[in-house]
Simulated assay, not measured.
Amino acid sequence: MSLARPSRTRTPTPRKAVRKSTKTAKAGPGADTGHRSDLLEAMLRIRRFEERCVELYSATKIRGFVHLYIGEEAVAVGVNEALTPEDAVVATYREHGHALARGISAEAVMAEMYGRTTGCSGGRGGSMHLFDASRRFYGGNAIVAGGLPLAAGLALADRMREQNRVTCCFFGDGAFAEGEFHETANLAALWNLPLLFVCENNLYAMGTALERHQAQTDLAMRATSYGMVAWSVDGMDVEAVEQAARRAVEGIRTGTGPHFLELRTYRFRAHSMYDPDRYRDKAEIERWKSRDPITLLMDRMRASGAPVDKDVARVEQRITAEIDHAVEAAEQAPEEPVESLLRHVTSAPAETVS
């Protein structure tokens, strides 16, 4: 059965290019303490996992490139709250947080960091290539903006099969300068694809500040030029992120086309573990740390009367045990035997037919 291509003659319903600003979420009498606790635990899991990776990398247990997500946890957690297991996620090479928020176990991610066969990519991907098709988590892509065309393909497949699913693609502000973004944005709007663009604007493309590589730094406004709904969000506020993501996903599911979220966030650590981080002012880093997404949510929960400190102590203990187990399992897991190194690299020889 052939799949029809998107019609080129259909006159689409005009979509208003909207640029909105999502303000910081505020605590209220209707705030769900249980849900906030879940958000807090998810962010703490990412933060503690990343901190353990720093220790393991320094001890040469983890090798290769490692890009930490510390400071940006609210983005991955908030956006994933708006998605269903049937939706697809495409991430960047700074994707440990996305993978954990998507539900991939710390054990599977840590084993992949170690390059062991029990890792989510069989030990072949390492830090930058986490993958789990069962979770519809399609990378982990080491090429800047490389995940965007893949996301468009996933969204197009769902559209042609008439499946009401959303594809969410995370990418950084540096990817905004790449041709792949503009090509993907154009086709997504032209073909009315169910695609959520999530730009994690942490102000630096590797070591280059946003204002040094973009003439117009309002990325959400620029995204509206493709006729898609777009707005900027406080990426340090997990509740604001979740609210914005839910609005965007709802709009996509109702057929209003792709949406673009600019999540204004900040990484507290350098670009990678190799990076000496000499291009940022230390005072700037401290200013952003004063808006730590974990601290922000904890303060909001305290203000609402929730017993945060007592609950966090239990959560921290549980997360520590989870990560300890993940490290122990990774260190005991086998490496891939040399005999199978060409598996998935070259095709198997055809069997001789007598």
Rank of each mutant, 00 (worst) to 15 (best):
R343T: 15
E55S: 08
A306T: 11
H96Q: 00
E81K: 13
Y57I: 04
L148F: 04
Y266I: 03
M221F: 13
V345T: 11
G71R: 05
V241C: 11
K282I: 04
S134I: 09
M1H: 13
G146R: 11
I294C: 04
R287P: 10
V345Q: 13
A74L: 03
A220Q: 09
N202F: 06
A31D: 15
L193T: 02
K289H: 11
L261T: 01
E262Y: 07
C168H: 01
R102C: 03
G115C: 06
T217Y: 08
T33A: 14
S105H: 02
E183R: 07
E180G: 12
P149R: 05
A329K: 13
P12M: 09
D234L: 05
L130A: 07
L296R: 14
P6W: 09
G257D: 03
A220S: 15
V233K: 05
E336G: 06
K282V: 08
A99F: 03
T117A: 10
A348R: 15
V249A: 03
G115V: 09
V54F: 04
R161M: 11
G122N: 11
G71H: 05
V229C: 07
Y204F: 14
E242N: 04
P276I: 09
G255P: 06
A99E: 01
Q216A: 13
I319K: 05
M273Y: 09
L68S: 00
A25P: 02
F260P: 03
T254N: 11
L203V: 08
G179N: 12
P29C: 04
F176S: 12
G251H: 14
E41L: 07
D132P: 11
F181M: 11
T118F: 01
V353R: 13
R264P: 06
E331F: 08
H182C: 01
A248M: 09
A106P: 10
L154T: 06
V249N: 02
T84S: 15
M228W: 10
A74Y: 03
V166P: 07
R10L: 11
A350F: 08
A133Q: 10
C169Q: 05
L130T: 08
T11D: 12
P258I: 07
Q243R: 12
E316G: 05
A17V: 01
C120W: 09
A111E: 12
F260I: 05
G179T: 10
H35M: 12
V66K: 07
R52E: 12
S354D: 15
I46H: 10
G71T: 02
L195R: 10
N202E: 03
L154G: 06
E95G: 01
V90N: 01
V233S: 02
A215S: 13
E284P: 07
P149N: 03
A215R: 11
H35I: 07
R159H: 07
R300K: 14
